[in-house]
Amino acid sequence: MPLDPSFIGRTYPPTSTYEVSRAKIAEFADAIGDDSPLYRDPAAAEAAGYPDVIAPPTFLTIINLASINAIVADPELGLDYSRMVHGDQRFIHHRPVRAGDELRLTTHIDDIFVRAGNDFLSVHADIETVEGEPVCTTHAQLVVRGE
């Protein structure tokens, strides 16, 4: 069953606020084997001009993937999660993510189309602080392999 194209243009407002912690940044940096002091040491981050430790460039996958998963779980969209793969991912950073950020994410469905028997779903998310400061824009394409 093809995806329902009437979902193009749909917007999913934030459902929660994600508070970025020093501990989660350090845990993520450990998991990717990156020992940069800017991810762990507030003094090093301050010396580099940041108010607190900053996060690796793909850190926001934590909330970005969760939002995508929430969309694809919508039964009306008709997406078979077991056949879904991540086609591409992009992060546009308006400023580095840092510990203490309280972030809210709004996701948009940009496009739904069929190509070569596979369903494609393009989404983007605007991530900003609770004060409304833009932090990051993410773009993702999801592919549902044809049966």
């Binding site: 990156d34 800017l38 591409d88 400023r95």
Partner: peptide, 20 residues
């Protein structure tokens, strides 16, 4: 990580995208 090791300050990565 390869890019941030090279550039030094990870905050200098303003955009990053890949296809899988």
């Amino acid at each position: 990580r390869m890019v941030t090791d090279w550039v030094g300050d990870p905050g200098r990565v303003v955009e990053y995208g890949v296809r899988f």
